[in-house]
Nucleic acid binder design. Structure first.
Lengths: 341, 341
DNA sequence: AAAATTTGTGCAACCGATTGCAATTTCAAA
DNA sequence: TTTGAAATTGCAATCGGTTGCACAAATTTT
């Protein structure tokens, strides 16, 4: 185990001051370019590696971005993280990732860790039932930039990166209506979260625009799990006045629901047309393939990270840009297409 | 933006030395318990938060673990990460996660970042085509513990966490044979990676044990992508002497292959029985449901993190425990079960 | 040739916590 | 009361870069 090389070692060998070495290594303009070359060469020769802590300690920043997600093992989240990692890495930032496991309590704990870890900025997608945001307010109070993505908050003045969930909900519903559906059931998640309320809004607007009544008994709030999907199928099966369209705001849930419906010998899309949300890989595996909203996870991650880093570097002010809205796409597949209305 | 509270502030207010405050906050035994109470109370009152950098700088450790994975957006990997995060978080460690995107080059860059970031330990699952391990050797040279999981290396003396891939390959193949398959095709990935060579070994052993010939034309090396699955189906379709069993070491690939085969009107499992690997969610969506090897991702992550942290805390020596083998399970579903051989 | 700039380096004080060793206090045993 | 050990606490150096300011050298301007 060799001992570490420091700028002092380099300075001594070259008969320079550590200050000069430090500046040279950081490409400071006031250092002569010959000196710089000399120093970088020597640094390479000695196998010098910068000590991030010393630097962080002195500069009071960490080059680290905290990320809090509801859970790690979902296709969408991991795509987002992949995008974030890509960008962060390119720009010299590290990512510290933590999952709330959909619990406020864990979310608070994670926030605290990030806070103590003195992340330079924080990227958050809220847990299922988070309401108060005190645990995140501390960041704002300390001037640590905070950016929400996907599951965002309306309360604070933090920037958000989202898709237009209202429009997505509208498009999904309108598509079903165009396919001749008259009674469209909407299965969604906790309405505390923007993604779900917004999609519901879109659903309602589409109904209105097409002169269809809004029937509260066709709205189901669930936890969007596989079990929930099966449960929904069961309920539909027991209904007297069955729906002929189904808009479920999560592909995994939609897929398990479809499987259950098929077991009950519903024909999809003839008896009931289905639209999901997220464009999870399973959407292209289920038969019939699931129509869904394609949701740019990777891109969302890239943009969220990009924005935060730009803000940190003083290029853009996050406080002014309040919401970044990304494009989504309705991907029509067999689960919703009726040859004849 | 309030200024940070330091141990000096606490010390001054209580007329104590920073040394005492530091010790008290770390629950050092030689500090009087009354003093400790006094200090912790004051710290809470002032909203003190420890500065990790100062501490890291002084103690020369970061309480951070680096993780390098081939890619983030795969079900298996995100399960592993979820497990790692859980454990690391409980034990006061942070995770810095980076993806190699299956490229050695990126893997090297990530390793360097981790190295400079002075992670306390490193958890690695190798990229597709990594051969030399110089970029990881530096860690060992510096005495930074290195632990491989899943895609492990045979060269170094680092500990590995894996499943018994030989046995898994054997079981999958034997299962197909028991179902009456005589010509089993094996689709797998780059044989530089243990997971694939081992599964191939198992495949071969099962053939031998059941007196079946090993036919090289039934082995296909692919990149395990969806496209590869479609390609395999195409090739099978063009074969004169078609296989009646298919063992694909990745569910996503298996599923796309199945879909393509179905289009060519192969009946599964009657014409060709299929076994996958990983127990990805899609395995339960495809019809018929895919028989596969259930692979404990979350657990693998937990154990890998656990072992590394235990080593860091001097509880166990990682260098002596060389390989940790986890259980796997063959989950039999419809894709492989033939009512009559 | 003197004065005013510009350029390039160094000094030394940070950043905040940790820790070996010394110093002081406390308390019991002699 | 003295002595010695044990329990507490403090001193001061250290971890390795960073940066405001001073200063010297080189260059340009009068």
């Amino acid at each position: 185990m060799e001992k570490e090389v420091t700028i002092y070692d380099i300075a001594k060998q070259l008969n320079l001051s550590p200050a000069t070495v430090s500046r040279a290594l950081n490409d400071h303009p006031s250092i002569n370019s010959n000196t710089k070359e000399l120093i970088t060469a020597k640094a390479a020769e000695l196998g010098y590696r910068s000590n991030a802590f010393a630097s962080n300690l002195r500069r009071q920043r960490t080059n680290t971005i905290g990320v809090i997600v509801p859970r790690l093992n979902s296709h969408f989240v991991s795509s987002v993280l992949s995008g974030m990692e890509k960008v962060a890495n390119e720009r010299g930032y590290n990512l510290i990732i933590s999952q709330s496991q959909e619990s406020v309590k864990k979310e608070k704990a994670s926030a605290k860790t990030m806070f103590n870890g003195r992340v330079d900025g924080l990227l958050v997608s809220l847990a299922y039932d988070t309401e108060e945001l005190d645990h995140l307010d501390v960041f704002i109070k300390k001037g640590i930039p905070l950016l929400f993505f996907d599951r965002v908050s309306t309360h604070t003045k933090a920037t958000s990166v989202v898709i237009d969930n209202v429009k997505a909900g509208y498009d999904a519903t309108a598509h079903l209506i165009e396919q001749g559906c008259q009674r469209i059931m909407h299965v969604t998640g906790n309405l505390k979260r923007n993604v779900y309320t917004d999609r519901l809004k879109g659903y309602k607007l589409a109904l209105i625009d097409h002169n269809l009544p809004y029937d509260e008994s066709l709205l189901m709030i669930t936890d969007m799990s596989r079990e929930a999907g099966i449960d929904v199928a069961q309920q539909i099966s027991n209904m007297y006045n069955k729906p002929d369209g189904l808009f479920i705001t999560n592909d995994l849930c939609a897929v398990s629901c479809m499987a259950a419906l098929k077991k009950e010998s519903f024909r999809i899309p003839q008896d009931i047309a289905v639209v999901g949300f997220n464009d999870d890989p399973v959407a292209q595996v289920i038969e019939p393939n699931l129509t869904t909203i394609h949701y740019p996870g990777e891109e969302m991650g890239e943009i969220a990270a990009q924005s935060l880093i730009n803000h940190l570097n003083g290029l853009v002010n996050i406080q002014t840009t309040n919401t970044i809205v990304l494009h989504f796409e309705l991907v029509v597949r067999e689960s919703s297409v009726r040859t004849t209305g």
